[in-house]
């Protein structure tokens, strides 16, 4: 393709192109991780007592645990599960924040103060504590954790969207539209929503790291996904019992993979924001 063309290679890419390239590259990596996690069959993590507790080797890149399960496969499966939970939670959260942000900024003063009060309410308890409470209320498991993440992570994005809509509201075309007798709902739908869609996309991507880290944390504490599932939090909390015997690979590799994935999403989100919203790029 183009890469073989030396002329093109010598020409330095501009910042926009580089950002796009980084985005695409990182997205491909994430997709590969998710796909392999889904496609790996259960046999890969079957109990195999002959190779128990073996440190990392070429056969088992991340070593094996006390049941002889291959940690590399378990980590990949855990990652794709965590990404799924994180994404669902982040999207749910973003939906809530878009609705509330729009309501606050367009429905008048009373609605605005109610939404601000709600934001304060949800920020006033530490995330982890409210996650524990919600997970407890729904009896743990997938439902509890996704609901918990969706219900606790929206306030920061809602604030951003609210101020964004407030800005758009004072612009000329909205004023004209109002004078022409369009209804509030119509203006919101036709003029406001298109403006905040980019913000929302970036918001989901930047919410995602928090969502996935909190998912792993709550699962680690034992209130999240059930122990049968190969989630990263489960793997790490199980590994705690074997750390004092020196089996460091049980905790090290899954954790660092989680770190990489989270960092990648963060990077994609930052880059996308730079492309969409150059004014705030330096922040």
């Amino acid at each position: 393709m183009q890469l073989s063309n030396k002329q093109l290679l010598k020409q330095p890419l501009n910042k926009r192109q580089r950002t796009l390239l980084v985005c695409i590259g990182l997205s491909i990596v994430v997709c590969v991780v998710v796909l392999t996690g889904i496609l790996l069959d259960e046999n890969r993590i079957a109990t195999n007592l002959e190779v128990r507790n073996s440190p990392p080797s070429l056969d088992h890149l991340f070593g094996t645990d006390w049941l002889g399960r291959d940690m590399f496969s378990r980590t990949l499966m855990g990652l794709s599960l965590s990404i799924g939970v994180g994404l669902t939670g982040a999207i749910g959260s973003a939906t809530i924040s878009v609705i509330l942000g729009l309501v606050a900024a367009t429905m008048g003063k009373v609605a605005d103060s109610i939404v601000t009060w709600l934001i304060d309410l949800f920020l006033s308890v530490p995330h982890l504590v409210s996650l524990i409470l919600i997970a407890f209320a729904f009896g743990g498991g997938f439902k509890g954790i996704v609901l918990g993440i969706a219900l606790t992570h929206w306030p920061s994005l809602a604030r951003v969207i609210r101020s964004e809509v407030m800005q758009v509201r004072s612009l000329d075309f909205v004023q004209v539209s109002k004078k022409m007798g369009k209804s509030r709902w119509w203006i919101t739908k036709e003029h406001m929503l298109p403006h905040i869609i980019p913000q929302m996309l970036v918001g989901v991507l930047l919410l995602f790291p928090h969502a996935i880290l909190h998912e792993a944390a709550v699962t680690f504490l034992g209130l999240g996904l059930s122990p049968q599932e190969p989630a990263i939090g489960i793997i790490l909390s199980e590994s705690m019992r074997y750390l004092s015997v020196g089996m460091w690979w049980l905790a090290f590799f899954p954790g660092i993979c989680l770190l990489f994935i989270v960092r990648m999403f963060d990077k994609i989100g930052d880059n996308l924001r730079m492309l969409i919203d150059p004014h705030h790029a330096h922040r």
Binding site: A217, F220, L236
Partner: peptide, 13 residues
């Protein structure tokens, strides 16, 4: 982007 508990586990190890 680092999970707090993982950092704790590393220090523990």
């Amino acid at each position: 982007s680092t999970p707090t508990f993982w950092m704790g586990l590393l220090l523990l190890i």
